[in-house]
Write a protein that binds this DNA or RNA. Sequence first.
DNA 1: ATAAATCCTACCAAATAAGTAGGAATAGTA
DNA 2: TACTATTCCTACTTATTTGGTAGGATTTAT
Lengths: 147, 147
Amino acid sequence: MLNKRSRYAIKALIFIARANALQHPASVSSIADTTTIPNKFLESILHDLKVAGFVLSRKGSGGGYYLSRTADQVFLADLIRVMNGPIAMVPCVSLNYYERCEYCADERTCGIHAVMEELRDASLAILAKTSIADLIRREDWMKEPEA
Amino acid sequence: MLNKRSRYAIKALIFIARANALQHPASVSSIADTTTIPNKFLESILHDLKVAGFVLSRKGSGGGYYLSRTADQVFLADLIRVMNGPIAMVPCVSLNYYERCEYCADERTCGIHAVMEELRDASLAILAKTSIADLIRREDWMKEPEA
DNA sequence: ATAAATCCTACCAAATAAGTAGGAATAGTA
DNA sequence: TACTATTCCTACTTATTTGGTAGGATTTAT
């Protein structure tokens, strides 16, 4: 399961992208007010997002957060890796957090390994192509089915 | 990521299936010895597997654990659900552990929801068809490529 | 009887997750 | 210049989950 940091991060990025589209930054409190994410917790999540390069910020009055790239270049896979950890279900098939399997002598002959690779690829096929822009499009489309 | 209970459970069930194929039960210590799973921890995992109906046991000298069904009827999806929890990455798309989403007003118009359903189905497509027997076949096949 | 096994209850320690507190630094505005 | 709205930074707290361990009761084959 995704942790709350990831889920909140997705929600927050959607909000920021929408604000940016209207030419203004999104402040922590504006996001917290409309999403019910605890203010201080959100602050620390946005800090992580900044360190990871997803957003930029402007301090002071009228400041807030911006996407560092267009919303169609922010992919769920990257976001989840930063906020939640590996996409894979076992470390020995993780592309970004690989750890040698401690319990099998040889990964090449481990039956579990192969299945877990399949699973990783199937997940990645979805997560690495779905962007924040896609999520926004889906929301908008679903709210106005005749558009 | 899968927790250790799940990973150990998979390893243990493979061992038990192999032992059963030779007409004898698998004792906790025989499994622990060949897999490096801590003895007492394994004991508690096997207890869970019994309660969940995956295995049967016989007490006393010469006793141990049996699969309650053939190895090709023990699927990873079922095992993971019992030992690890939901397959889905968010509770609001879980088939077996559903919880209403606390942060979106309407699931039908939530853009995240739809993607998470896709992801769940992609994972399930693999996990619900892969059995312990499949894992054993893969192991055997990979160890003897010319068979 | 005895040895080999499961069964059962309780406990424990470390890690992770989720969030809070308090204030310093910065930037726009009156 | 003062004020206010904001991010930035460090540290703390609290609850839950994870990965075990301890110790003994019960059952069964020999």
